[in-house]
Design a protein around this nucleic acid. Structure first.
Length: 727
DNA sequence: TACAGTCGGGG
DNA sequence: GTGTACGACTGTA
């Protein structure tokens, strides 16, 4: 028997060995161990059907152990009688469940589709990069015992000595033709020409062997680079050991488009490795937004393998956390079948209108305004009021009922994030923990927010619309209490939006002056609230269709520390060209130091000069083309468009040269003087400055400038706004 | 004018 | 294999 202390890198099922676990040992070894792992699921239904199921299971060839048990279904009051089915390995379980559930589609299944890593976490307390003490038999590398020395909730776990290698083409393969593969290891870089195929393979294989990375960080690795390298490897018959588990194939997952948050999203194809983790920066929002630290910190709390964590949505993450808590608390995990969405009833529509509290702002420019926001409002409410599918409707001050599944899941995450945020506030930027804390804090925020959304999602395993409504109800309640408190203390409330208030009081302009109000709101509502900042000035815009009507989420302003906040206007939209966005930001920057409307008035001529200068650059065609690129999402197949918008016309051009985009992918294009009015950016031939439609861009420029300047220009109608026509 | 299409969130 | 809202805004017919 050998004992080793190390960090868990990866875990996956194996046909013969049960579960394979890769460890980074303290002494630097990379260890491949395995462990037999039994998997149990259960079914409930009428006694007749369960008897029939028992007979069927007895007469099929996959070995099983059957039993009877009782269990707790969160949505059923009484204990449920269960037929339990235990397989001796994860692969047996998969095969058996897929056959069995087809044979008996009328049964209710539990614990049937739980990710292997979650089952392992529930049984042994493991999670990605958990530091553990492992006993194993050195003769056959079989694990005898795993003892976690680490908790997912600790702020500063012992850091694993990860070896990271970056692999990327030198140019964006969607836009240009890359010539080299760039390999980066720590501070070193290597450049291998793509055209010299044999040397490329030999060199790559050599670095992979020599450095033996744990993490292979790529750009376009899923969708372009690794498929290409594997193809070259086949053509040249030269080996390329991307996997550590060398005899294994690489797992390809197909691309797909799906609906989420009311829109189509596209997820590119994926390549998963074994024994080593492939993370594609271009195919992972989490990796792009929160970096490698964000992925590692998310994997620790969700217990999903690193390669999966990087590529899934926060919804999958929070759902995994709920599943783990359920198993640990002996709550059955209902099988999540993909059921057709039923149509909404009139009642549902009525309910949907009862979301967050939204108020109409007082339009125009206001100075010395404080913005206060509840901290993680919805998750805090779920924890404080014990809102969960199985808990009774709460009163505002919580319930006597024991904590439900959702609060049990959220509480440690919420507390870890609050602690990290608190530490960040006092920490220097050069502190080695700073980046990791920031990454974790924004990754956790997404998990927390999504948990609320999932309560209202019909297909979620642990959702219940009444719970969702209870959260928004208490949210509105808390916001109204905050408003009353502010008014009681002499503030004017200019605007409210879901979890934030914009308030003003004569003589109050320093951050610490807001403290008594914040304390009072916290004590009245029981929810944490903090000052987002004090604006030098903030402008709430009216509707463009009717200037008498305020709109809740179009505003911008400058804080005392010089930072700028913008919502709803062009610069916030991803379909705004960089040049236009830049202009808006420069205009705001120009006005940011002002503390009175008079000062702003004085600077207006400068602002207008800036706009004219930009317009002149456009007319002289001096603006770099990449600054004029517009990006829009394709929502359907080309044939689905009745009046093709610019993005669809650009896609048509790409199609004509054999390139394609699927619904959910975005496409880049320029506005030009041609029949289509657009020119796709990723065509093999390049656009030239003469093609650009100066008219279109100048209108976009003036419209954007107008969004910023109109609140300051008295008694003038917007001068420059008119529809943009093609040509 | 009616209809069709896109975006928003946070950091 | 995970939020099919909803309102503002813009372009096209």
């Amino acid at each position: 028997m050998t004992s080793v202390v190390g960090w868990l890198l990866d875990l996956y099922a194996d046909e013969r060995e049960g579960v394979v676990l890769w460890w980074i040992a303290k002494d630097g070894q990379r260890l491949r161990l395995h462990q037999s792992f039994e998997v149990k699921f259960s079914a409930s239904g009428s006694p007749d059907r369960l008897r029939a199921a028992w007979r069927w299971l007895k007469n099929q060839p996959i070995p099983v152990q059957l039993g009877r048990d009782q269990g707790r279904d969160l949505f059923i009051h009484d204990p449920v009688t269960l037929l339990t089915i235990q397989s001796s390995s994860p692969t047996d379980h998969h095969r058996l469940f897929s056959l069995f559930s087809k044979e008996f589609p009328d049964l209710d299944y539990y614990d049937a589709d739980v990710e292997l890593s979650i089952r392992h976490a529930a049984k042994y307390g493991t999670f990605p990069l958990a530091c553990c003490s492992v006993d194993y038999n050195p003769d056959n590398m079989e694990i005898r015992n795993i003892e976690p020395l680490d908790s997912a909730w600790s702020l500063d776990p012992s850091p694993p000595p990860l070896r990271v290698m970056t692999l990327e083409p030198d140019l964006d393969p969607l836009h240009e033709i890359p010539e080299n593969v760039v390999v980066s290891i720590e501070k070193k870089q290597y450049l291998f020409p793509l055209s010299a195929k044999r040397p490329l393979m030999i060199n790559l294989q050599a670095v992979l062997r020599r450095y033996d990375p744990d993490i292979l960080l790529t750009n376009w690795g899923d969708t372009w680079l690794l498929p290409l390298l594997l193809k070259i490897s086949r053509e040249t018959h030269l080996p390329l050991s991307l996997n550590r588990d060398t005899w294994r194939g690489i797992l390809h997952k197909k691309d797909k488009s799906y609906f989420s948050y009311g829109q189509i999203v596209y997820k590119g194809e994926q390549l998963h490795l074994f024994g080593r983790c492939h993370l594609d920066m271009s195919n992972s929002f989490l990796l792009r937004d929160c970096g490698l630290d964000g992925v590692l910190e998310t994997a620790r709390v969700t217990t999903l393998p690193l390669q999966m964590t990087a590529r899934t949505s926060p919804g999958t993450g929070i759902s995994s956390m709920q599943t783990l808590v359920a198993i640990r608390n002996s709550i059955l995990v209902p099988w999540h079948k993909q059921q057709a969405e039923r149509l909404k009833t009139a009642l549902d529509l009525l309910h949907d209108d009862q979301g967050g509290m939204i108020y109409q702002p007082i339009t125009g420019v206001h100075t010395h305004v404080g913005e206060i926001d509840f901290v993680s409002m919805y998750p805090s409410i779920m924890v404080r009021c014990n809102i969960s599918p199985e808990t009774p409707a709460p009163t505002f001050l919580g319930s006597d009922y024991p904590p439900g599944l959702i609060p049990l899941t959220l509480k440690p995450l919420l507390e870890k994030r609050v602690e990290m945020k608190r530490a960040l506030g006092k920490m220097a930027h050069w502190d080695p923990r700073y980046d990791r804390y920031s990454a974790a804090s924004s990754a956790y925020k997404a998990l927390l927010v999504t948990c609320f959304g999932y309560l209202g999602y019909r297909n979620a395993r642990f959702g219940r619309i009444e719970s969702h409504e209870a959260v928004t109800k208490w949210g509105r309640e808390a916001l109204l209490m905050a408003k009353e408190t502010a008014e009681d203390m002499g503030y004017e409330v200019l605007h409210m939006y879901v979890d934030g208030l914009w308030i003003k009081k004569e003589g109050v302009s320093q951050p610490d002056q807001f403290a008594p109000l914040l304390d009072e709101i916290s004590s009245r509502t029981g929810l944490p609230i903090s000052l987002d900042g004090v604006y030098n000035w903030v402008a709430f815009l009216p509707s463009k269709r009717d200037p008498r009507i305020p709109v809740p989420n179009r505003y911008f302003g400058c804080f005392q520390d010089g930072s700028i906040k913008i919502r709803g206007v062009e610069a916030r939209r991803r379909d705004t060209a960089p040049f236009i966005k830049e202009t808006q930001l420069e205009l705001l920057d120009l006005l940011s130091g002002c503390t009175s409307p008079e000062q702003i008035q004085q600077l207006l001529p400068n602002a207008e000069n800036l706009v004219e200068k930009k317009a002149l650059q456009l007319r002289k065609r001096q603006v770099p083309l990449d600054q004029l690129v517009v990006r829009q999402r394709i929502s359907r197949d080309l044939s689905g468009y009745k009046s093709p918008p610019p993005a669809a016309r650009a896609l048509k051009q790409l199609n004509s040269v054999g390139k394609t985009k699927k619904p959910g992918q975005s496409i880049k294009f320029l506005f030009v003087n041609s029949k289509d009015g657009v020119f796709a950016w990723d065509l093999p031939y390049k656009a030239s400055p003469e093609m650009i439609s100066v008219i279109v861009y100048e209108k976009l420029l003036r419209r954007a400038a107008n969004s910023i300047l109109s609140p300051f220009i008295k008694n003038t109608l917007p001068l420059f706004d008119s529809p943009i026509s093609r040509k």
